[in-house]
Design a binder for these strands. Structure first.
Lengths: 243, 243
DNA sequence: TGCAACAACTTATTATAATAAGTTTCAGAT
DNA sequence: ATCTGAAACTTATTATAATAAGTTGTTGCA
């Protein structure tokens, strides 16, 4: 019905449109969003489509819905939203606040077997194909905040080891070069004491508590998941998420 | 269309029905669920309703859907699923595996001001009304696993301090007695070193890394949220979740 | 004044229908 | 034997429609 590039579904367009209005402050915390009926008229869409978009806003914590009342705008997350445990759009949603964040690649991608201290088990097919392994250190204002190991199965990724990752998000690379989108996954979190290597990387005393967050990231390809093991200083930057 | 008590929506009934089949093993990891068309015929429901139920199964990680292919059953989470960071039905879904888990109330509910080391800020109205404060210690096989402080606004909760909480889930009490359902919330997670009190409670050496998980839990009442601050030993039981 | 009942709003659930788009399979051509 | 492409299947998107159910405000009665 629109002359926009019909690539993007209407409900996603509406979601993004409302989300921007909330972020810009057009709707403030505590406000009621226009009713579903109003949104129908305004955007020339029907109720199911409207509700699909509002459902996404609920999932991401921007609004809460109450039957008979309306959609209540929630306060925006405070603080530096750098690290999000959950959240469908975590990486893109927080991109605007990562200006001062730098990423250093410590290990160029190279083939490796699956690390045995990892909290997930890869599929048999993945194990046979081997894995790319890379490490990166992220810092805010020159101060190291988290250290991450990433393990990618050596499948569907021709020429991966030749890619540059310095100033490019791994997620962007996977999306633009290989058509891979992260759709969800599983995570495990625990508190560990920093050993020598980790303490040096994160500039904390040996034995200091450090947060470890292991993830399996599932993609739009049913048989392709990859893995990440993240060690974070949480004395300054806290991980947060919704549920 | 059914003679079941029409209280529960069809999509929830279907969700639970399929979930049980997956848990029982009728559908195994890697299997394809019946197509949406088949489910329509089988349950006498239409596609949107089917899809709503399948959407919940995706959210909770039981299946993954792929356009043109079908709904792929995922492996059930391994290990003791006691502690879930995220998950809409975390408390009920894991109830079956908590046989050996015990809960001790360390502090009877009493009125208090909002603790200042907490990572969330309550609303102004809540602050004026004051808060109930209670502490509990959870153990598996006599071994302490996590210690939790719970803070509830002193509103809508007549007679709360007289309630017994020993062998009863707080969530059950809130639901049955006060009609309050947890619908979602926000969480912040960090690694801390155990101080004297905490080390004693969790039976770990002072200075050991401990995971701290603070939550704001939103309920079906728009103006009622409560708070939890949880300290967990993660050397033995890891927190996990989906995103 | 106080309260009960109702009207007018809201979101929630469900059905029906049509079309788009991705994956699999297999027949047929090369 | 291998590749091409169409057919048949799948899920995804969107529209239209009707009814249920929760919330708010108002009207009018006691």
């Amino acid at each position: 019905m629109n002359d926009r590039p019909t690539r993007i579904p209407q409900y996603q367009y509406l979601y993004e449109s409302l989300r921007q209005q909330i972020i810009r402050g057009d709707f403030k915390s505590g406000d009621l969003l226009p009713s579903e009926k109003d949104l129908q008229n305004q955007f020339r869409l029907t109720q199911p489509t409207i509700r699909q978009a509002l459902g996404l806003l609920v999932q991401d914590g921007y609004i809460r819905k109450h039957q008979g009342k309306g959609s209540i705008v929630q306060p925006l997350p405070i603080g530096l939203g750098v690290m999000s445990i959950v959240g469908r759009l975590a990486n893109t949603a927080n991109a605007s606040r990562t200006e001062r964040m730098t990423t250093a690649i410590l290990t160029k991608p190279k083939l490796h077997t699956f690390p045995d201290d990892f909290l997930f088990t890869p599929t048999e097919d993945d194990t046979k194909a081997g894995f790319y392994f890379l490490e990166r250190l992220r810092a805010v204002e020159e101060e190291p905040v988290f250290f991450e190991k990433i393990i990618l199965p050596n499948r569907y990724l021709p020429g991966f080891s030749r890619q540059r990752l310095e100033n490019r998000s791994l997620f962007d690379l996977l999306r633009t070069k290989y058509g891979l989108l992260v759709k969800g996954g599983e995570q495990k979190v625990l508190a560990v004491a920093a050993d020598g290597d980790l303490a040096r990387l994160l500039s904390v005393p040996i034995g200091n508590p450090v947060l470890r967050l292991d993830k399996r990231l599932d993609t739009n390809r049913p048989d392709f998941s990859f893995y990440s093991s993240l060690y974070a200083r949480t004395d300054r930057y806290i991980l947060h998420g919704r549920f």
